[in-house]
Design a protein around this nucleic acid. Sequence first.
DNA 1: TGTATTAGAGTACATTTGTTTTAATGAAAA
DNA 2: TTTTCATTAAAACAAATGTACTCTAATACA
Lengths: 205, 205
Amino acid sequence: MKSTSNYDLTDAQNELYSWIRDYMREFRHSPSIRQMMQAMGLKSPAPIQSRLKHLQEKGFISWQEGKARTLQVVDEILEGVPIMGSVAAGGLIETFNDTNENLDITDVLKKKNVFALTVNGDSMIDACIADGDMVLMEPINDSFSIRNGDIVSALVPGMGTTLKYFFKRGGKIFLEAANSNYDPIELNLNEVVFQGKLLAVWRKI
Amino acid sequence: MKSTSNYDLTDAQNELYSWIRDYMREFRHSPSIRQMMQAMGLKSPAPIQSRLKHLQEKGFISWQEGKARTLQVVDEILEGVPIMGSVAAGGLIETFNDTNENLDITDVLKKKNVFALTVNGDSMIDACIADGDMVLMEPINDSFSIRNGDIVSALVPGMGTTLKYFFKRGGKIFLEAANSNYDPIELNLNEVVFQGKLLAVWRKI
DNA sequence: TGTATTAGAGTACATTTGTTTTAATGAAAA
DNA sequence: TTTTCATTAAAACAAATGTACTCTAATACA
């Protein structure tokens, strides 16, 4: 990841790029070419087009041809970070090299209506979901889309919302903790409302 | 989940609002009215305008009149997902409500040169870092910025890159696993190269 | 100096797009 | 049923906007 320095750009390109970023940060949408023209003190759109083309060729921006205000600053699209190989969390010897792959943690956000929950307690500790973790959930529309072994958040009468393994056996629903200190909950299908299915776990140190 | 705080909206408005959010989350710019029209299965822009007007009056969105694709979703950080309260992962009763807060998982990416590693093995299992997890790391420039108890990735001679707890006692470096099956590694400061410090853990199901 | 290259001005055009208007449709209320 | 209101379709319009083209001025280079 070179970035940071815009040394590859001419002054004019750099100035435009910088202005675009500021504009988009403020207004949350792309400026139009004529706005850029004005901001750069120009009286014709042609120079802007030229600079945009160069910025695009150098990988700084992109846009949808013919569509108004669809500029994207590539730096901000790439929410991914380089994956530098794997680390031993055991006795194995592993290398530390740029795998040339990227981890995009925002792809789960592209699903519809994803929401987050704060985990409270240790009942899922054996599934490595700890107290204080954030879990990203996908809404459940029909309970038939849940498979045995999925981790779900469910509204259980008298228990509130709880995060558990889902199992279905012989018409009964079993909600099981990942902690032997907690007993499974047995319910009928109509006694429980499923809210979401686990997509990802996020823990910020 | 009856989309919580959108009770003020009609189904059509709610559907549109939801679609706009998803679109902007994916493409990072506002859709045009005709795109919304298509997405809603309509053949005329008028209904969309009507719904947009209502959404604006109710404070959900705003835009610059006459300007193309200048829609803004008010009150919403697009990188974030709504935090819908907390779940019991224990015996506690917790509510399931829109807390009106947002989880922004991209903020750690704003640090410089963040990189990711794939976790291999179970030596950090008691810290709830499991085999296959991705860890997001911040580069370590000088080893003095590391504090006792931090989780670091370190290059240890003969062991490759490993993820461990860092401790420093009496001029010696101790790298300790979060798993009693592994013994601590004792090293001199010049025998180890620290690569990164743990920022976050990411597990996608 | 002369030529080639580049950047900018000016203009024009086609498409995209927001907006308005009117008529048709359908659902709800009287 | 009839009336009333909201929704949608359809069409048209005007503004915004991306793009292409030519011409001129500035710059770089041999």
